[in-house]
Design a protein around this nucleic acid. Structure first.
Lengths: 208, 208
DNA sequence: GCCGAAGTAGTCAAATTTGATTACTCGTGC
DNA sequence: GCACGAGTAATCAAATTTGACTACTTCGGC
């Protein structure tokens, strides 16, 4: 799965209630259109699809106050909230995902309690270590002539290097979280669950 | 674009002439179904699409000799050959691609002359260095309070680390290529351009 | 002699993604 | 007073991707 659902759910959740263009704008501001598939078509499609599946609740709102076709506002249902957290956990843990997944997960990591975030990242490190070992074994079975693999061994080198650097980064973040960096879910000083409608999204544009 | 076209063109090219199942089998053997989107539907779709676009020539062959529906064999046209090399070059150079692109590029790197492969990888390193610097600047503009960015700065750290490890790997491969590792296109001892039909593909299964 | 598993070859519907395009409003200049 | 670019909000056709499914053959066991 791509990161689009996580991104859209996270963006809607930050507003409490949002219409497509707001989501699209937030994601564009984050540059997500460049490092993920967060393009208009995908965003609107994801909103509709998730509404159909009961993850989002759609409110048809009168023709927009500022030009354009009538707009629809969405908010997370309970199922949507659960799906959001599941996707977020998976984004931080799973190592076979494309990098946009992990990037999105990091972007929303403060929606998790500190303990859990650390635990997930530790799992990530363990998975990366295991994968590196597995790749190493798979590509150098006893008795097989290294010559035989030739340049294909370079793929192994690439993967091993990717795994090690990924684990390194995760260890760094674990350390920072362990020493109290950032304000995580449920901690005093946390951003309110839902942004006040009149205040701008600190991570997005200035339009309420 | 995904890696599917590069993979399919490369696989067909290695056989000189191949039908869909052969391609599918090769790619499965390389594990490409796991680290890329090389699934049956995508492979057959890519074959048909590229045939329609003149990159491949389709030969309808009598009902298969060994079960299943009638099969179609494909071979690269001149345009297909050009497209293949263009995709391969781009896979090795471009840094904004998903990792399956680079992996595929490495898998086929010996289809390029040594000089060119080295040059492309050097370009890659330069692009990665530039990207790392740009990310660093974009995320720490003068006057902006680091506190303001909070955990979002972790995305920057992730990207910087990705860029540096990617550049490191590329430098390693450049070095190995420079000291004569592997047999590249046009070099004595090179595998023949096209595999003999009766011999197995050394990088795939044993069926001709 | 035939049953089932494995292999061969490919198709299909549904979901998703892309990239362009539509449609309407507001402010700015002229 | 109106043309034009920028902003707002979304839709659409075409291409791609996914995952399951069809259909046919061969081979080993019983």
């Amino acid at each position: 799965m791509s990161a689009i659902r996580l991104l859209v759910l996270g963006a809607v959740r930050q507003h409490g209630r949002a219409h497509g263009y707001q989501v699209r704008n937030d994601l564009e501001y984050w540059g997500a259109n460049e490092w993920s598939n967060a393009k208009p078509g995908s965003i609107y499609h994801a909103l509709k699809q998730m509404a159909k599946q009961g993850l989002l609740l759609a409110h048809d709102v009168a023709p927009s106050t500022a030009g354009g076709p009538p707009r629809t506002e969405y908010e997370l249902t309970e199922a949507g909230e659960a799906e959001y957290l599941a996707l977020l956990r998976s984004a931080l843990t799973a190592i076979d995902e494309k990098p946009d997944m992990l990037t999105s997960g990091v972007g929303f990591i403060v929606d998790l309690p500190r303990d859990e975030a650390i635990k997930l990242l530790q799992q990530r490190v363990a998975l990366l270590d295991a994968w590196r070992d597995e790749v190493g074994e798979h590509w150098t079975p006893r008795g097989s002539d290294p010559e035989e693999w030739g340049h294909i061994g370079e793929i192994m080198r690439l993967w091993v290097s990717t795994a090690e650097s990924g684990a390194q980064w995760a260890r760094g973040l674990i350390e920072r979280l362990s020493s109290g960096a950032y304000v995580m879910a449920g901690e005093s000083g946390a951003r309110p669950e839902v942004l006040a409608p009149e205040s701008g999204n600190p991570y997005a544009d200035e339009n309420g």
